[in-house]
Nucleic acid binder design. Structure first.
Lengths: 336, 336
DNA sequence: CTGTTAGCGCCTTCAC
DNA sequence: GTGAAGGCGCTAACAG
């Protein structure tokens, strides 16, 4: 069942079939209809690979999540990435593109398919896909800015603003010594959080306390770090963390130290998650909208591939979910 | 940078390049080496699409997760599926294949790439990918059995045995009226659980109580169902659920009714998850090993595509994690 | 408006 | 052992 068969069955040439099926050329509507009917009747399906060869476009998008090397586990342990990936995959399919996940690990690997462009989440210099795409001159969209090349097309959130909003919230509820707990990832979002935090502290004439959690993006890392700063003489009475798993570690540490949340310690974090909702008290979190982010990244990448003029970086709006871990919270239902 | 360039640079013919690069023909080792060196030096990368066209094989595997229509949300809400998918994607890549996720929703969609085979998780008759692959005569491996065609190649667990093991555990801890809470999904694993449960009840001369949770694979569905059977006069003193989210719903219902776990109610469930570990008390769960399952499914599918003689269905071993929600549990650390 | 003709890059006979 | 030629199914110039 190839185009040739359709052409024969319809009594026209290959070109006519191709044009009729692809809405090209200026065929009389009758011919177009007839060819299409024949094609449908024959159950004709275009051979994508052949089409790709001829057009020089594979229709495949690659996506990689570039985690810091120090963190154990993989991207699927982080809800934000899972939702982003799933949304990106769906958005791609919907637009007629296929999305393939790049391998998590670095190391030497080769992509087994031709691809037309790449989405690199939380880019780091060593990211294999990023380098590969650059080497082959293929379009790249990053989620979070590429610190080595800030002008690169990207989708991002305004993390600094989100941090300030959370700090305002906790300060209104009485926080006087809010700390920032950051992961050791050197990503644009972490920098933005630190920047936002420091700007806020300066404006309020407060002494900033930035702690970096060693040991990766895990609850354990947050726990260990929190056990440290929560036992200091002048311990923080509020913490903002750059990742929900860190917040849950702090949560656990606070409980183990007998601290009451939100009274003794308020917690707010970046990246809302089911775990943040399920904790007791539930953790106030900034929803980064990974679904919108994934969709935007795909849309942007496709634009870049098609060399659309209006392909430009995009800021996805965030939304704060206020919960029991911060002072002014009204209790939220489990189903929130 | 095509093979032709390599041929010219190496001063040999196209065939020689092709044979040298693909370990074919009987070239003198020296020639083979030289050609490869030249190719490498030139940074030659074979054009996958062209290769696919010529060989009639795309190198692409599709994977779909076929959820019951009644459930809200998507497959990424279920940890088992996420881990399976991620493992499958990695395993495919490692073997030189690419894996593309099929759209979650039914509806009319078309795959934008040629694919060589499909993995269908938890197959249902209406699964679009399953039908498509069948229609095109492409190999399919299911995760869980296809109830309409039980001989189809699959990867599965011995759920019935896992259920019996859990029931034994709870019975030893004193359970006298264990119930089974099943999702309304008509999948082979649900049937296996019910069968295992009924066999067990018969052997112990106990009256089976099978409850089906309406409303999909959610915590809410488990909660609602549990509020029902936990307020009956002769309420169950133990529950096995076919999915962790249902167990968490039961957990919540038990708490809201003031029941003490595991004393008043024991809970065990299929499919271990982070949420099951984090609950207090933590929920005893059967680890279905989605990572091994995903890898096996890929391996099996590739075998089927390559028409290997030893492609046969596979049972992935399970492992029970005993936690505080069942009587004989020894307290487990958070990091478990 | 429609048909003919080259490719797209690689693989695979088949002669040399 | 090596080279020439045809074909995979479709697209895109270019004639007609």
């Amino acid at each position: 069942m190839s185009m040739k068969d359709v052409a024969a069955a319809a009594g026209v040439s290959l070109t006519t079939v191709s044009d009729a099926l692809n809405d090209r050329g200026r065929l009389p509507e009758a011919t177009r209809r007839r060819v299409r009917d024949v094609a449908e009747q024959l159950g004709f399906q275009p051979h994508r690979t052949a089409r790709s060869l001829a057009k020089g476009r594979s229709g495949i998008l690659m996506l990689s999540v570039s985690l810091p090397e120090s963190t154990p586990g993989s991207a699927v342990d982080i809800e934000f990435f899972v939702r982003l990936m799933s949304a990106a995959s769906g958005a791609a399919l919907q637009r007629g593109w296929a999305l393939v996940l790049a391998p998590a690990t670095g190391g030497e690997w080769s992509v087994p398919v031709d691809f037309d462009g790449a989405i690199v989440v939380d880019p780091r210099p060593h990211d294999a896909l990023l380098r590969l795409a650059d080497a082959e001159g293929k379009p790249v969209v990053t989620v979070g800015r590429d610190l080595e090349n800030p002008d690169r097309l990207h989708v991002d959130n305004d993390h600094a603003a989100a941090v300030r909003e959370a700090l305002d919230l906790m300060a209104e509820a009485g926080a006087e010594r809010p700390a920032l707990l950051a992961s050791e990832a050197d990503s644009s979002y972490v920098r933005d959080c630190v920047d936002g935090y420091q700007v806020w502290c300066t404006a309020r004439a407060m002494t900033p306390q930035v702690v970096t959690a060693a040991g990766g993006l895990t609850q354990g890392a947050g726990y260990e770090a929190a056990r440290g700063f929560l036992t200091e003489s002048k311990r923080p009475d509020a913490v903002f963390t750059t990742l929900d798993s860190l917040a849950l570690g702090v949560h656990l540490a606070a409980q183990s130290l007998g601290l009451d949340m939100p009274h003794d310690l308020q917690i707010a974090t970046l990246s809302d998650s089911e775990a943040a909702r399920q904790a007791r008290p539930a953790v106030t979190a900034v929803d980064l909208d990974p679904v919108a982010t994934g969709k935007e990244a795909v849309q942007l990448l496709i634009k870049a591939i098609e060399e659309a003029a209006d392909a430009e970086s995009f800021l996805v709006p965030t939304r704060m979910h206020v919960r029991g871990s911060t002072g002014t919270a009204s209790p939220e239902a489990v189903s929130d």
